[in-house]
Amino acid sequence: MADTLPRWEHFDHQSDIGVRGLGHSREEAFAQAAQALTAVVTDPALVVERESVRVSCQALDDEMLLVEWLNAIIYEMAIRGMIFGHFTVGCQGMHLDGEMAGEPIDVERHQPAVEVKAATVTCLRVTCDEAGVWTAQCVVDV
């Protein structure tokens, strides 16, 4: 599995949808989870990197840090009317500095499927397995 990293995927939830990022590090898994979040809305490959936005967040544990990170992205998407296609994450302990690059939503080109309301604590998990693969996941409410 490690040779297919980093990557993202979705998983099923009856009402909404789960986002999962996998990577060689916590930071990489978090960045991939953010890509999965974008893929809930549109094909990330359709997003042009025109503008960058920086965010910072913190939490008491890895799992809540993932929720904070995804909710920070959801907030920036909502207030800026943007969609982001590239993410970089740096963490120091439970403090995260993130940068995301994207563009204003273009309804014709992006065909945005759905607005994300929030990252939730349902199916929330941040783990590192014995092979050193980090998984960061939760369900997002749409």
């Binding site: 008491l60 809540m64 929720v67 909710n71 907030y75 909502a78 309301k117 929030a118 990252a119 939730t120 604590v121 409410d141």
Partner: peptide
Amino acid sequence: GLGHQIGTDYLKLMLA
């Protein structure tokens, strides 16, 4: 958006 963010804000506070 108002309701979405209130839900997010207070879920975190209530968890804490």
